[in-house]
Amino acid sequence: MSCWETIADYGLRSLGIGERLLPRSDFTLCQQVVLIGSGMIWNIYFGVLALVTGFALATAVAVGKAQSNPLIRKPSEWFIFLFRGSPLFIQFFFAYFAFLSLKSAYPFFDPFTSAWLGATIVLFLNTAAYSGEIFYGALLSVPKGDTEAADAYGFSGWRKFRRITWPTMLRLAWPAYTNEAIFLFHATALVFVSGFPARQQKGDALYYASYFADKTFNPFVPYPILAGYFILLTLVVISIFGVVNRRLNRHLPQERRTRPRFRAATLMR
């Protein structure tokens, strides 16, 4: 069987399209690369969806945490503490079993026990909390002069936030937010090992990599392939976020532009 046939059979296997049975013996390198790559579709799906939805909530939470009114501030603080203070792995388990219990009472919750919705919700809330904290920190370091200048120009309320505070906050938060995005994509690998079932063996990249490692008892092929895919994904994320970063900083004089430094010290969550 040529590699092209393998791609046709297994390229979209993680979505349930193509060959139904996974290879069982005589694994070729091509099969491993194609299947693990097919699983990456799920990692990208989870990551992109959680990132886009989480961004909106993170902005709201950050603004909420910066309020002086305790009725708004306290819930935001608790939300951030709840999701940053506990392991994502446990959050997945808890959410899955909570949805399972809800499902037995209300059939409406049936889709929530599937990874495509349930895990996305957990990742969305989780990344909203982490990014919310980053945005909150950036919000506090918006230069006083910027807001005073906005006042002088007669900006107020929503327009001031939309035109002055928010872009500056994003500009300051962007390097840390890039790291959060990288970590979010890495965290998507946890979905199918933490309760959420991979129905009909439709799993993510890690699911297929561990499938091959279990079957061949040789971790030295599938995991490096997985690592290669993730490094590639990380580089793509960095370059896309780099484009946004340049746009956010384009009004600044050349020497004041902050070049994001992707050091693991800031990379951790």
Partner: peptide, 20 residues
């Protein structure tokens, strides 16, 4: 050693190292 951990999810390392 430092750089490689950055690009790859830690969970992949865990599953890899235990067998390796």
């Amino acid at each position: 050693y430092i750089a490689i951990v950055r690009g790859v999810p830690d969970i992949a390392f865990f599953l890899f190292f235990v067998i390796a």
